[in-house]
């Protein structure tokens, strides 16, 4: 797939994880700025989903199968927003920690996406 995009999402996700992890460390809940950050990361994941599907439609093959590939793309799209919604119910540092965990999950999914797309 578009390697640059995968790298961009991974870096953005790790940055978000560090940012929210820092907020949790400082005993702060998620603020508006964090949600803007989550929106940016989610947008990148959405672009990745669209690009991935377009490439599949154009006839390119994911090494481990198209179904798994799309499933992982959807998982990558949902990881950060889901954690963000949860953090709205927990206005403490644990909400921030959950978003950080969600961003780490996204980064791990990106590594898997890369494996699934390219020849192992």
């Amino acid at each position: 797939m578009l390697d640059a995009l995968t790298v961009a999402v991974s870096v953005a996700a790790l940055a978000l994880a560090a940012w929210c992890g820092f907020a949790a460390y400082r005993n702060q809940s998620t603020k508006d700025w964090h949600f803007i950050g989550m929106a940016v990361v989610t947008f990148l994941a959405l672009v990745q989903l669209v690009v991935g599907i377009v490439q599949l439609v154009r006839g390119e093959k994911a090494e481990e199968g198209g179904t798994i590939f799309v499933a992982y793309l959807l998982g990558a799209l949902c990881a950060v927003p889901a954690a963000g919604l949860l953090s709205l119910t927990e206005r403490s540092k644990w909400g921030s920690a959950t978003v950080a965990a969600g961003a780490v999950v996204l980064a791990v999914l990106e590594v898997r996406l890369y494996d699934i797309w390219t020849v192992g």
Binding site: A71, G75, A79, A82, A83, L86, S87, T89, E90, S92, W94, G95, A97, T98, A101, G102, V105
Partner: peptide, 22 residues
Amino acid sequence: LVKGPGLLVVWLYGVMSVGAVS
């Protein structure tokens, strides 16, 4: 049970559930 650290625990269990089930 979903409060404080419990939220993080639930989140991780949720992620593992989705991953393992699918």
